[in-house]
Design a protein around this nucleic acid. Sequence first.
DNA 1: ACACAATTGTAGCAATGACTACAATTCTGG
DNA 2: CCAGAATTGTAGTCATTGCTACAATTGTGT
Lengths: 137, 137
Amino acid sequence: MPKTVANSKPHQRTRSDHASETAEDYVEAVAEIIAEEGTCRVKHLAARFAVSHVTVNRIVDRLQKAGLLVTQPYQPITLTRKGGRLAAQCRQRHEIVYRFLLSLGIDEATAAIDAEGIEHHVSPATLKKFQELAGME
Amino acid sequence: MPKTVANSKPHQRTRSDHASETAEDYVEAVAEIIAEEGTCRVKHLAARFAVSHVTVNRIVDRLQKAGLLVTQPYQPITLTRKGGRLAAQCRQRHEIVYRFLLSLGIDEATAAIDAEGIEHHVSPATLKKFQELAGME
DNA sequence: ACACAATTGTAGCAATGACTACAATTCTGG
DNA sequence: CCAGAATTGTAGTCATTGCTACAATTGTGT
C-alpha cells in the first residue's frame, strides 16, 4: 500500500512515493478547478499539468480505482469524500509551505514554484515548524 | 535536454526532471562512497538506495551515456569531470538545505530526511535565502 | 437537424525505475 | 589452484508517465 508519510530512513524513496505525489497533485487540482470553473474536465487537468489528455485519462482511471475521484466516460470529474479530504489536506500543506517561503522574503513567483516542488517532501514535524514560523498558528 | 534548474511555471514538472534528480542523487552518492570507501561499486549504490543491483546497473548505464560517470564491466565506478562538478554542486546544495532546516530547530534525523526530498526543488533564489538564514555566507 | 468543432476515449509505443531469475565474472580461503 | 562465495551483468516482466494517431462522443452554430 503506498504511503504519503515520510520514510523512516534517507535514500529510500520509491516509485510508490511518486505515484502518491501524483495523486495528491491531481486531487488538489480537481478541487481547485471545480472551485474556479464549476466543473472539472479532462481538458482542464491536461492544461493545468501541461500534458496530453491521454496522460490525464490514465491517471484519472487509476485514481478512480483508488477511490479518490469519480467520473464516467465523457463526463466531468468529481472527488469522493476520501478524495476531498486528501485535497483539503494537500491544499493546507501547500498553503503553509507557500506562506513560509513568502515569510522568508522570497518573491511570490518563486515561492509558488518552489512550494509546488517542496510540499511533497516536508515531514509533519517540519511542516509544523513552517506553520509556526509563518505565523499561521 | 534535461535541465536541473527550476521550471518557469508551476505545474510543469516532467519526467525529465525526475530523471535529473536521479542523476544528481547518484553522482552525489558516488562521490560520497568514494570518499568513504575508496572505491564505488554497484553494491554500494544498491545498498545506499535500497534497490536491487539491477536497478543500479541500468541507471549507471544511462549516466555513463550521459557522460557523468565511467565504469567497465565488473569494475568500480568513477565520476567524470562533469559528474564531479555536478556532485559538488549537489553536495553544497544539500548541505545548505540541511543546515537551514537545523537552524529552524528541526531535529537531525528529520532534517536529514527532509533535505533529501527538498533539495531537488529549491530554486537558486530560495537556496540563497536558505544559505543566508542558516548563517553560511 | 446535422455537419463540424471540441472533447474524450483507445491503441500502441518509449523511457524510467522497480523486480526476479539466471548467467558470468571476480575474489578468497584452503 | 580451484571451488564456492560474492559481485556484477543479462533477460524478461511490470507499473507509471509521457507521447502520437486514430476513433468515438458530445456540443454548437447555422
